[in-house]
């Protein structure tokens, strides 16, 4: 009985760890302060997932239900860290290179020609997407 209670407690603690860690992560993302070394985050998420799996096996129904979000978050977020590495192709532009000519539609659907940039310094930002 006491063991069941202990495992229910672990099942309840696991999502607290996973959700707390996730909230901290998105807070840091908003402040552009995701650390270079993300191992601590990954470790905490995986620990939450592991506790969740253990609770799923050993706890009562309260602990089992609580363990599910810990497992989902605890595995999904390390997965996003794993696939986040960015790799440039050979021949990527470098400092000192002249930028290529380009044309593309702007947000009004009108075609912008890079010729218009000539004679002015410009800051160009490539980003992934709005989502």
């Amino acid at each position: 009985m006491n063991t069941r209670k202990l495992w229910n407690g672990i099942g309840l603690a696991a999502p607290v760890l996973a959700i707390g860690c996730t909230l901290l992560w998105f807070g840091q993302a908003r402040a552009l302060e995701i650390p270079e070394n993300r191992a601590l985050f990954v470790g905490a998420w995986l620990a939450a997932a592991a506790l969740g799996v253990a609770a799923l096996v050993k706890a009562g129904w309260v602990g089992r239900i609580a363990a599910l979000p810990a497992i989902v978050l605890g595995l999904f977020l390390p997965f996003t860290v794993g696939i986040s590495e960015q790799i440039l192709p050979p021949g990527a532009i470098q400092v000192g290179d002249t930028i290529p000519a380009f044309r593309a539609p702007d947000d009004r659907g009108e075609i912008f020609e890079s010729e218009r940039l000539r004679g002015h310094p410009v800051l160009i930002k490539f980003f992934r997407a709005h989502w």
């Binding site: 860290v81 986040s84 400092v95 002249t98 940039l117 310094p121 800051l123 930002k125």
Partner: peptide, 29 residues
């Protein structure tokens, strides 16, 4: 998708400075 990148280009069209994200979760401050 493009690799998140900031490029500063001079009036002569040459790249003066650039910053490339090693992973998309970190952005240029």
């Amino acid at each position: 998708l493009p690799v998140p990148t900031s490029l500063l280009v001079g009036a002569d069209g040459k790249v003066l400075w650039m910053d490339v994200s090693a992973n998309y979760q970190r952005r240029t401050r």
